[in-house]
Design a protein around this nucleic acid. Structure first.
Lengths: 145, 145
DNA sequence: TCTATTTAGTTCGAATTTGAGATAATTATA
DNA sequence: TATAATTATCTCAAATTCGAACTAAATAGA
């Protein structure tokens, strides 16, 4: 198969894999009344600690207006709080609350187990190459855009 | 790094790569007045020929209500037509029109070149493993769900 | 210092997407 | 054959997402 053709096939496989996993996660997380985006925000705050709104947006790659929206939903649910930075009053830090942490502690193990089961069809070295190759490609995409 | 941890990292990299590419494609295709979903439908009809609505839905993994919606948009734009199957009157075949083909012939080379440039940071064997690994994972996900 | 530019986040309207529940046609079963 | 179950698609309301334009605050440059 020619190089160009392989790239296109890889892209199609990437899209399909992502979409299929997304559907699985959506179903799973819906039980807890969360959308995939809400979960992504909670997850990054849970693992990385308090972040500015902008950092959250860069992490999960959604429009900034969507970031405002999803954080508002999470505040309503009591899972995060938003605090203005005293030094730079344009920026806000978002942190997970105890209630948010409790939900994540309930969801996360099942979520992680599901993800792991998706990848358990790969050998160790395949998985490693997959991970590294994806990192290279996403860095490349960010560079080009 | 432990196996489980690598799976989670691979998943995060997958999501991030997909989202970044999606944003790039959206920008690119917007110039032609198409959404990413509309483009995906056109692309599959362009490369695979006429398909039923259900097959299109399975290919691009969106809700069936969304399939109805996006095909309606494409009909309005004159890029596809919908024809009822004479044998099974529940099913409809969707085909790309000449106008749709013309648009695809205009967009597709640039689109393909962009995709290829995203993957040109990988060696041939890395790309091959990436593609095959993604196929395995998406098959695995479909099996589990 | 004054003004221009940049940065962080929000508002708003329009477009898209979803899930739940129809409808209509086909197929399986009693 | 009559009825039940399945299949293909659609309708609808609600939720999400986006892009464009905005406000407010900080920083850079004259």
């Amino acid at each position: 198969m020619k190089r160009d053709e392989t790239s296109l096939k890889a892209f199609i496989a990437l899209k399909r894999t992502n979409d299929a996993i997304d559907i699985a996660i959506r179903k799973d997380i819906r039980k807890y009344g969360l959308s995939v985006t809400e979960f992504a925000v909670l997850e990054v705050l849970y693992t990385k600690g308090p972040l500015t709104i902008q950092t959250i947006r860069d992490r999960i790659l959604i429009a900034s207006s969507s970031t405002t929206y999803v954080i508002e939903r999470l505040i309503e649910k009591g899972y995060v709080i938003k605090e203005q930075d005293t030094k730079d009053r344009r920026t806000f830090y978002v942190s997970i609350t105890d209630a948010g942490r409790t939900v994540m502690e309930e969801i996360f193990p099942m979520h992680a187990a599901m993800i792991q089961s998706f990848f358990d069809c790969l050998e160790d070295d395949e998985l490693e190459i997959l991970k590294e190759a994806l990192k290279k490609v996403s860095a490349r995409v960010s560079n080009i855009i």
